[in-house]
Amino acid sequence: MLTLQEISDRMEIQDLMVRYSHAVDTGDWDALDTVFTADALIDYSAMGGSKGGLAETKEFLASVMPGFGAYQHLIANSSITVDGDTATGRTMCHNPMVFKGEDDETPGPTMFCGLWYLDTFTRVDGEWRISARSEEKSYMYIAPTA
């Protein structure tokens, strides 16, 4: 049976992952400062992205995300293991991304990305943060426009 602390930790970590998704989906790169530790290692290379620290990751996202007209990070099926002030997690992500078309009004092809986030979490000053994140690729499919 889970203790109240374990339940609270898991809920706080799940909220953290939702905050990550919202920050990326709204382009609020500074909000990532409240999601990751200052020294986090973030590895998006399995899906063709960057690998580096928080500053490099924010720069990467700010440079590539404007090329998409729409996108969503849909996360589910988190498996979280808490051990005191550290935790690990594996979370499924379905991420449809619509490329911009010829003009900003016309959508281009849609890329469907399926992956798992592999995370290490650290409690910092009483709040959970992601201290390491990598991605495990499941699928990537680009559906042509109609």
Rank of each mutant, 00 (worst) to 15 (best):
L54K: 04
F60I: 02
V82Q: 02
E12L: 01
T34G: 15
F68Y: 12
G89N: 08
S63L: 11
A31Q: 00
Y117G: 00
G89M: 04
G48D: 11
G108T: 03
E102N: 13
T37S: 06
T110V: 13
A70R: 14
S134H: 10
R133C: 10
I130L: 07
K100D: 10
F112L: 12
A146E: 15
A31E: 03
A62T: 07
D103K: 07
L74A: 12
S21C: 14
A76H: 12
I130A: 02
I7E: 07
D103S: 11
S131R: 01
L41N: 00
A55E: 08
C93M: 11
T37D: 04
E136W: 01
V82T: 02
D103T: 15
C113W: 06
D28H: 04
T122D: 07
T122H: 09
N95E: 14
K51Y: 05
G108R: 06
D30I: 06
T145D: 13
A31R: 05
S78N: 12
F36N: 01
V82N: 06
P66W: 07
Y139H: 14
V18F: 06
T106S: 14
F36C: 03
A31M: 07
M111F: 03
E127Q: 15
V98R: 10
Y71V: 05
D33M: 01
I142Y: 11
H94F: 13
Q14K: 14
M140A: 12
Y139K: 01
A55C: 13
A143H: 08
V64Q: 05
M1T: 13
M111G: 04
G126L: 13
A87T: 01
E6Q: 10
D83I: 08
M1Q: 12
D33K: 08
W128H: 00
R19S: 00
L115H: 08
Y71K: 09
A62K: 13
Q14G: 09
S8Y: 14
R133G: 00
E127W: 00
A143G: 01
A46W: 03
K58P: 04
G27T: 08
Q5D: 10
A87N: 00
L115I: 11
G27R: 01
L41T: 13
V35E: 02
M65K: 05
V35G: 04
V124M: 14
T81S: 12
E105N: 09
M111Y: 07
G27N: 11
D43Q: 06
T34W: 09
T145S: 12
G101P: 03
T57Y: 05
D83L: 11
P96N: 06
H73A: 06
I130N: 03
